[in-house]
Design a protein around this nucleic acid. Structure first.
Length: 642
RNA sequence: GCCGGCUUAGCUCAGUGGUAGAGCAGCGGUUUUGUAAACCGUUGGUCGGGAGUUCAAAUCUCUCAGCCGGCACCA
């Protein structure tokens, strides 16, 4: 007879097999009501699950992460049930839990409309109110296939057919609707109290663009209404951080129809962009890089040799000149850098050779992929290529890794994860070369003392890579930096150096980027800071504001003085009230507002206010400049506090 | 590229077949102002492009483009 051991170590003895529900009831009526599922010997099960033998036991409620997942999963089922009631011809496919919610894919003869969505959501609420019991039963595989085929659910039948033979096939029913599912599920639909359908979209069956397009409905679900509201609020806040919105508000850049996926940088945006470049120049020079610049346009033949034409030809811009020569606009900088390396004889004594370029590349991205500055067709990489001997891979990789991580700290990104991506299915070079490259990159990673997760099959076509992923202020991950070990490209493009025995040797090429795309990195910064860029990146670092025209001369003089010290300062002499000017510059996220009235002019002072509304008191222009300079020099690590 | 939605003044948005609107911005004045919006007046639109239906189209249909949300892709 079963003895169940609770998480606190206490035990309950039963004289007959019991269900999870019964055990929960034995512990307390409140817990029984809150029970969504059980955990028996580590395995999640329904509340109807029968425990016959001794077991470790826990009740799963909506306070457990697993409980939340179960709510979401069951809400996906509720969605499918509602769709089947309203659109009996629709076929169900899969409905997994995703971050903050769930989706369900349906095959239907027409796309669902926003009006359908409202109707479906209403039907879901109705079904939840009915508090239908959710029941589980097991069916033999062949029988299950037959069962779903009989229902006209051919996608389900296909899914079952693909389930490994030894796995149990379980069906879940609620009301008159049955779905194949691994479970577990909530005991009854009444447990689903707070959900909302968010969007409809097309999605390919089995994620393959050669397959039929299904209708995907997304939704979110939470334990209670309040948490749902909070989630919707968070989405709203994230929307306010949208770099496209901020870019417009702050007059940084725009995009227009004639140049899809290409950025028109306005003076303020370009100032930020140039600040990024200036910073990186400094860091790279200190790290032993030499800046180069390779042509934007090179003969297509070169791109054939590199392998780009074969793999990415469809995404390259080509142009035929009047002399009938075919040129490609560079989608990457590496072949150009190899040409510079190749020019002249290189000795092993010169290695490592470190080239860096703020190279503007063009890639014809699929139209549906474009997204503000995040995904564009013309962008600038802080691209570097280091030519090394095989012996130098480790030390050089360690140096690159350290540099990347240190640079991220200057931008206030402390939380950085690293992924290791190995050989992709479509690649150049033989397996022996890949074995060496992968081993070298792994060795370098452990020498650098970094931990990584595996990103299987996601390496570049010419070599494995480390991907540096940073986490922003609202918890989103962005892959930016990359380090790739390439034993293929130098050989394909005929690069070599002379070793200590006067023999020709092919160098190894390390590809690396810190920002990745400057356009995208800038977008990430805008969203991370919600537009409040640190002063060293702000297009305007301070505005000097006069209260009446009596201060005009002083305001101009102070502005001039600060500008002469290399600070980005403007004056605002407009015929407006101070409150109005403060409001405008605050909305433009200017870090410091320097107000001068008669009192300040008389004492040669400025009244300093930050964009977050903090009053830093009065100070002389000299002291302010000094403090700001300290802040600028410490990058994102420190701010001036008056 | 695929599915859906959207596109009206510089910006944010009303306007469901019958003479194109509002707020903000801009411009011209008044006001000389103390830390997130002073007041008065006023300019501004081939309603994304093209084609069609209709006596009549911002509004209905087709088509192209761009954008937005997903999917697929991402050297």
């Amino acid at each position: 007879m079963p003895v169940v051991t609770l998480p606190d170590g206490s035990q309950r003895r039963f004289d007959h097999p019991v269900t999870v529900d019964e055990v929960a009831a034995a512990i307390g009526p409140g817990l029984r009501k809150a029970a969504l599922a059980g955990r028996v010997n580590g395995k999640l099960v329904d509340t109807s699950h029968v425990i016959a033998d001794d077991a470790a036991f826990a009740v799963v409620t909506d306070r457990d992460p697993e409980g939340l997942d179960i709510i979401r999963h069951s809400t996906a089922h509720l969605l499918a049930q509602a769709v089947k009631e309203l659109f009996p011809d629709a076929q169900v496919t899969i409905g997994p839990v995703i971050e903050d919610g769930f989706y369900y894919d349906f095959a239907y003869q027409r796309p669902f409309t926003p009006e359908d969505l409202a109707a479906i959501e209403a039907k879901m609420a109705e079904l939840a109110r009915a508090d239908q019991k959710v029941t589980r039963r097991v069916m033999a595989r062949d029988e299950a296939v037959k069962y779903f085929k009989g229902l006209g659910e051919f996608y389900k039948a296909e899914i079952i057919a693909a389930i490994p033979g030894k796995e149990e096939i379980s069906l879940y029913g609620q009301g008159n609707w049955v779905d194949l599912c691994r479970g577990p599920h909530v005991p009854s639909t009444g447990k689903l109290k707070a959900f909302k359908l968010t969007k409809v979209a097309g999605a390919y069956w089995r994620g393959d663009s050669r397959n039929q397009m299904l209708q995907r409905i997304y939704g979110t679900a939470w334990p209670d209404k309040q948490q749902l509201e909070e989630h919707l609020k968070r989405l709203e806040e994230a929307e306010k951080r949208d770099h496209r919105r901020i870019g417009k508000d702050l007059d940084l850049f725009h995009l227009q129809e004639e140049a899809p996926g290409a950025v028109f940088w306005h003076p303020r945006g370009w100032t930020v962009f140039q600040s990024l470049i200036g910073y990186m120049r400094e860091r790279q020079a200190a790290a032993g890089y030499e800046e180069v610049s390779a042509p934007e346009l090179m003969d297509a033949e070169l791109w054939r040799q590199s392998g780009h034409m074969e793999k990415f030809g469809e995404n390259m811009y080509l142009t035929k000149t009047p002399d009938e020569r075919l040129y490609a606009i560079k989608p990457m900088n590496c072949p150009g850098h190899v040409q510079i390396f190749k020019h002249g004889l290189r000795s092993y004594r010169e290695l490592p050779v470190r080239f860096a370029e703020f190279g503007k590349v063009h890639r014809y991205e699929p139209s549906g992929a474009l997204h503000g500055l995040m995904r564009v067709r013309a962008f600038t990489q802080d691209d570097g290529h280091v030519f090394v001997t095989e012996d130098q891979i480790t030390s050089e990789s360690v140096a690159i890794t350290r540099l990347i991580l240190d640079i991220y700290r200057d931008f206030g990104f402390e939380d950085v994860r690293i992924k290791y991506a190995d050989r992709p299915p479509k690649r150049v070079g033989n397996d022996a070369i890949w074995d060496r490259a992968e081993a070298a990159l792994k060795a370098a990673s452990s020498a650098a003392g970094i931990e990584y997760t595996l990103n299987k099959g996601e390496g570049a076509f010419y070599g494995p890579k480390l991907e540096f992923v940073l986490r922003d202020a609202i918890g989103r991950d962005w892959q930016c930096g990359t380090l790739q070990v390439d034993l293929n490209m130098p050989e394909r493009l005929g690069a070599y150096y002379i070793d200590e025995h006067s023999a020709k040797r092919t160098p190894v090429m390390l590809h690396r980027a810190m920002f990745g795309s400057l356009e995208r990195f800038l977008a990430i910064l805008l969203e991370h800071h919600a537009g409040k860029l640190p002063a060293w990146l702000s297009p305007v670092q301070a505005v000097v504001i006069g209260i009446t025209e009596r201060q005009d001369e002083y305001v101009l003089r102070v502005t001039e003085t600060l500008k002469n010290q290399g600070l980005r300062v403007e004056s605002d002499l407009r015929n407006e009230k101070v409150g109005f000017k403060i409001r405008e510059h605050t909305l433009r996220r200017v870090p410091y507002l320097l107000v001068a009235g008669d009192k300040e002019v008389a004492a040669n002072l400025l009244s300093v206010r930050t964009r977050s509304g903090k009053d830093l008191g009065t100070t002389s222009p000299e002291t302010f400049a000094q403090g700001l300079r300290v802040e600028l020099n410490s990058r994102g690590r420190k701010v001036w506090e008056g």
